[in-house]
Design a protein around this nucleic acid. Structure first.
Lengths: 205, 205
DNA sequence: CATTATAACGACATTAATGTCGTTTATCAA
DNA sequence: TTGATAAACGACATTAATGTCGTTATAATG
């Protein structure tokens, strides 16, 4: 419909495709969506789509990059020490991720798990996943460590290990949620128990 | 090679196929293995393979059924109350699952995650996953509840919720392990921390 | 040994997804 | 207005996996 650029129109189109693609990934999951699905959802032709992205992997990674950026921004804020209660910040950060599978639930989370687990034999994909893991780890770890330094948390356990546990638990919940409907999962009670766990090992209250 | 039955030879062949298939699934993961892979690994022709199984899903589910049976047996034992220390039993049970991804690592665990998460939009597959989830839940829950009844564990928390958390943690670790190599995951330290937590909420020692 | 039932085989038709490429067409600039 | 540019298009060749089916060959049986 629109030949010979215009720069922001081009970026607009790209953004449209990404939005449509995200919906498709949420609906069908990573492995089961095809470029055709994305083409249809975005009202773009085969050739058009391939103008903007190399392949499905490229589309998905681009979508993932976005919220990676969000995390990095959060980390920034933490390191700048503009924080009142590290406990609240920690919960908020956890909830930010957990909300996706938890809430009204049309999140990309299960597709993310899919993306990484089906790609675990691919070097490139593994690197990508590893980078994301360490990104999250750094975020949680930084919050905990700073909370410890300020004396808000006890130092009985290593912040790195606690952070890893948090990640494992979130990933596990996301996975279980992809199998079980919300009613069956008792997510809230699990979250409460987990919060309790964190309180205990962080010595909060 | 062998026409006109012989019953146990037939079962033997079937078992061979399943063994070979399991190796293939471990190597390539669920989504990326094809019937061709299985055929080659099991030294069976296309027609031969389809004589025994309907499709890939059928093969994989059959493999899964096996260790489901193992779990059920364990549950039996618990319910028959032939248990000395419920704490030891609990650890052993957790470890039995965790060992797979943990140890020398050639386990089916990541493929299981794959199988269920990529099939989350399929009714049949979801039912299957749900059944397995509740099977595991029943197992852990029974151990904990009985431990509580015998006074070995405190009753501060609901056995059902604790069991769910255990499952979430195990699934999360399995997932993270499929991204990160063993050296990077610090699995042992995470497990130790989790064990510590279980001790706390179960009032052990 | 001859017969028969059937396990095992592998070619084949089918389906579906992928990425490419030559063509068309709308916009921008002169 | 017009010509150059490149976005958008969709047909196409390619690749790969699936499940079927008619044929082959062999182990059990009498």
């Amino acid at each position: 419909m629109s030949p010979k650029v215009s720069k922001e129109h081009k970026e607009q189109r790209r953004a449209n495709i990404l939005n449509a693609a995200k919906d498709v990934f949420i609906e069908h999951g990573y492995e089961h969506t095809t470029m055709k699905h994305i083409m249809d959802a975005a009202n773009v032709s085969r050739g058009g789509l391939y103008q903007y992205f190399l392949n499905k992997e490229d589309v998905f990674e681009t979508i993932l990059e976005e919220d990676l950026q969000l995390n990095l921004n959060e980390l920034e804020e933490v390191l700048r020490e503009k924080v009142h209660s590290h406990w609240d910040l920690l919960l908020e950060t956890i909830y930010g991720e957990e909300r996706q599978p938890n809430d009204d639930m049309n999140s990309l989370a299960p597709s993310k798990l899919e993306f990484f687990i089906t790609g675990r034999n691919d070097k490139r994909r593994r690197e990508f996943g590893k980078a994301r893991y360490y990104n999250g780890l750094k975020l949680y770890s930084a919050i905990i460590e700073q909370g410890q330094q300020k004396g808000e948390f006890c130092t009985k356990f290593d912040s790195d290990i606690i952070a890893r546990s948090i990640i494992a638990f979130i990933d596990g919940l996301a996975f279980d949620h992809s199998i079980l409907p919300k009613e069956d999962l008792k997510m809230k009670q699990q979250s409460a128990l987990f919060r309790d766990y964190l309180k205990t090992i962080l010595g909060v209250e």
